[in-house]
Amino acid sequence: MSDSLAASATLSRDMVRTTTYALVVVAALGASVPLWTGSMPFLLILASQAVIAAIVALSLDLLMGSTGLLSFGHAAWYGFGAYLTGLAAKLLTPEMLIVLPLTLVATIVLATIIGFVLVRQIGKTFAILTLALGQIMFALVFVMSGVTGGEDGLQGIPVPKAFGIPVVRPDVWYWILYGVLLAAILASFHIRRSPLGKAWLAIRENTERARFIGLDTGSLKLLSYVVSATLAALAGGLFALFNGAASSDLLNWFESGKVLMYVVLGGVGTIIGPVIGAAVFTITEHYVSSITNSWLIYFGGFFVLIVIVAPGGLFGALSSLWSRFGASRRGAAS
């Protein structure tokens, strides 16, 4: 098991140390972005997109890394959040402190209903149904094209306000998004160490045993599904407000594939790994797709390669390197 994707989250001390360093580096790097992109607003916008991607990645890791459920249609919740927030901003109020909570509540309700059926399935059926859910949300955009704008996408989302003040400046946006990301990372680490997080890990490790020690695995899985969906919807909502538009591309299965890639690339269950994976991937995608049209080929090929050669993700590989380095240093000292 130890060399598989399913088990990259171990509790080794080296892992904890790598995580701590990575967290500090990510936090410092992220916070410094507005300082050196002052003259290049475009970079700040790219960084903002990377931060949104990181939030989505984190949301999927809360599911995959906690209970081991594999969602192949996570874009469903990301897109759902984007469209709902965009519509609410257009039709109700541009106040983001109203529309975002509204989106979260709606997501919690819908994800609970859908999740109730989903989490009772075995792994493979679950995976298939999540993929289908992505396509269903995609279809919904076209069924309701009168409201959603269908093919043209949802246009004309107004400039959002926070406490009644319009949020326009890129650096202000960046700080908002970055703040949400940091809060989400810290919350994820907190949950991971809490009894709930440990019960989730137990389910991922050995669901049958978890049931026999009295854990209600069904409702615990549902909880992780809903938490994950809600965070993804929040990311989607932020994206719609930030971007001023939403399109059905958000719900494409390539989008779900990207989110999966962030998590796999970074290392399932490591929390900080998927965040780094998302940032690296988003920025790479931007530059590579500006040189070549065949981005999808590189993307798919790389995906296949990672699964075969580095199932623990880059972060997992880094950690094992680190522990090897640590071991040789300890060896030298003695």
Binding site: S194, P195, G197, L223
Partner: peptide, 10 residues
């Protein structure tokens, strides 16, 4: 924790 019924607390 399961026996004590605290498995769901954060």
């Amino acid at each position: 924790r399961s026996r004590e019924g605290v498995s769901r607390s954060i």
